[in-house]
Simulated assay, not measured.
Amino acid sequence: MEKKNNQERQQLYTDKYFEKGHLLLKIRQFLISIVGWLAVIIPILITITSFWASFDNRIPHIWSYHEGIYEIKFIGILLIFLWIMTTIFSISMTLIQNRKRDRVVEQWPTFNPINQKKRKQTIDNFIDQRFGNQEFRENVKTYDVQPEQNLDTHQIQKLYAQNNLDEINKE
């Protein structure tokens, strides 16, 4: 039992940043992250300030190219249009899925629960015959499957059909 607990507690990864020491690594990674955030924030601030300055003369003009202002307006309109389309799609898909769930999923089960138990028992017996009992399969460390033990295509469906448990083909 103690061995099992040790395996559960085993750390599967290491990161020198969170270990004691490695001060230069921590400083270097901190500086790199600050530079990365500045590379994201500064262009956004410049763009917002420049766009705002085109409407308010009190704001300093970092750049005032008319093409740039036009592009920002175009992207803004495009993003608003895409947000509206995404909202319409999300709401309509939610309504469709809720309606489908109410009509199909929450009705009586779409499978025969009695046959489902028989199917489980049939497949359990088949697997026990083919690969050994469940206790053996769960406790063995390695198991080599012999070529004759491989499952044929549609073998499970054929097994269900032999036992009259094939609900799909019944009409």
Rank of each mutant, 00 (worst) to 15 (best):
E2N: 02
K3F: 10
K3G: 10
K4Q: 14
N5P: 03
N5M: 12
N6W: 02
N6E: 12
E8L: 13
R9Y: 06
Q11S: 10
Q11F: 05
Q11D: 13
T14L: 07
D15W: 06
Y17H: 13
F18P: 07
K20H: 13
K20T: 05
L23P: 06
I32C: 09
S33C: 08
S33G: 07
A39T: 09
I41E: 12
I44F: 15
L45M: 12
L45F: 15
T47G: 04
T49V: 05
W52S: 09
I59A: 01
P60C: 01
H61C: 04
I62C: 05
H66Q: 14
H66A: 08
I69S: 00
I72A: 06
F74Q: 11
G76L: 03
L78Y: 09
L78D: 08
T86G: 08
I91R: 09
I96Y: 15
I96S: 13
K100I: 13
R101T: 06
P109Q: 00
N112K: 02
K120G: 01
I123K: 00
N125Q: 11
D128S: 13
R130T: 04
F131P: 00
Q134N: 11
Y143V: 03
D144G: 05
V145Y: 04
Q149C: 10
L151C: 14
L151V: 01
T153S: 11
I156L: 06
Q157W: 01
Q157L: 02
L159Q: 03
A161F: 00
N163R: 00
N164T: 05
E167C: 01
N169I: 00
